[in-house]
Structures are given as C-alpha cells and as structure tokens.
Amino acid sequence: MRSNYNLEELREIRPIEVPSFVFTRIEAQIEKEESLEMPRQWAWGLTLACSILLVVNISFFVNSNENSVAQTESTSLLEAVGLESSNQLYYE
C-alpha cells in the first residue's frame, strides 16, 4: 500500500455518461407535482372561508367579554342598593 497521495490524482477521474431516459422521468415528476397542486380558485376559497371563521370567532369572543363586563357592573349596582340580582325567590 502506498503511503503518499497527491490531490492532483483527482484530475484523472473521467466524466461519466448521463443515463438515458432521465428526462422522461423528470417530465413525469413535474406533471405529477403539477396535478397534485391545488387549483388557485380552491386556495382562495379556502383562505376566504378560514378568514370568515376567524372573524366570527373573534367577534364572538369580544362580544362575550363585553357582556360579562356589563353584567358585573349591574350586579355591583344592585348589591350597593341592597337588592338581589337573582330570580330565586325562595332560598332552599
């Protein structure tokens, strides 16, 4: 076994021929990927639906918070004047 090697020996590597029919496979892969892509109209529709859902959720959350704030204000006013805030007439 040799003990000294020269980096220049890499220049001896011969270029190899490209295997045939690779381009056919490339075309097939491109076509496959294109057929899997979602049509643009679908993508826009899905985005719109998601945004509407998000807006509805946010408005629902904001409204429920406002209601609870109003409720606590009315409860504290009733308590201040010594009235009951519940509809319960009999304490069982």
């Binding site: 076994m1 040799r2 090697y5 020996e9 890499l10 001896e12 590597i13 011969r14 190899i16």
Partner: peptide
C-alpha cells in the same frame, strides 16, 4: 465509475 482502475486505490 469514472475512477480508472490503475489509480483506483489512490483516488
């Protein structure tokens, strides 16, 4: 496969 037989070991 581009490595020639005579300098296979070195390369």
């Amino acid at each position: 496969p581009g490595i020639l037989l005579e300098n296979k070991e070195a390369v």
